[in-house]
C-alpha cells in the first residue's frame, strides 16, 4: 500500500511545482508529473481490487495526456513567436 503514498507524494510535488514555477513549459511538465502520479494510483487500486478496469482507465489517461501535450505546446510556442519571455509574470496583460 505504500504505492498509494508514493502516488500522493508525487501528486503533491507536481501540484506545488505547478504553482511555484514561473516558466510555462516547466509548469506544464509539472502537470505531466501529476498525471503520472494519478496513473500510478490507478494501477495500484486496480491491483488491490484485482480487476483490470484500472489499467483501461490508465490507458485512456495516457492518450488524453499525450493529446493535451500536443495542444498545450502548440499554444505555448504560438505565444513565443510573438514575445520572448516565457515566465508567467509577464503574461498578465489583463490584471484586476
Amino acid at each position: 500500500q505504500h504505492y498509494f503514498i508514493l502516488g500522493a507524494i508525487l501528486f503533491t510535488i507536481g501540484a506545488t511545482g505547478l504553482l511555484l514555477r514561473r516558466n510555462a513549459i516547466v509548469m506544464f511538465m509539472c502537470v505531466e508529473l501529476m498525471l503520472n502520479a494519478v496513473n500510478l494510483t490507478f494501477v495500484t487500486f486496480a491491483k488491490a481490487l484485482n480487476d483490470s478496469a484500472g489499467q483501461a482507465a490508465v490507458f485512456f489517461t495516457l492518450i488524453v495526456a499525450a493529446a493535451e501535450v500536443a495542444v498545450g505546446l502548440a499554444i505555448i510556442v504560438a505565444i513565443f513567436r510573438r514575445r520572448q519571455g516565457a515566465t508567467a509574470d509577464d503574461i498578465d496583460l489583463m490584471k484586476g
Binding site: 507524494i9 508525487l10 510535488i13 511545482g17 511555484l20 514555477r21 516547466v26 511538465m29 509539472c30 508529473l33
Partner: peptide, 9 residues
C-alpha cells in the same frame, strides 16, 4: 522517482 520529481520542480 521522488528525487526526480523534486529536482524537476
Amino acid at each position: 522517482m521522488a528525487a526526480g520529481a523534486i529536482r524537476v520542480v
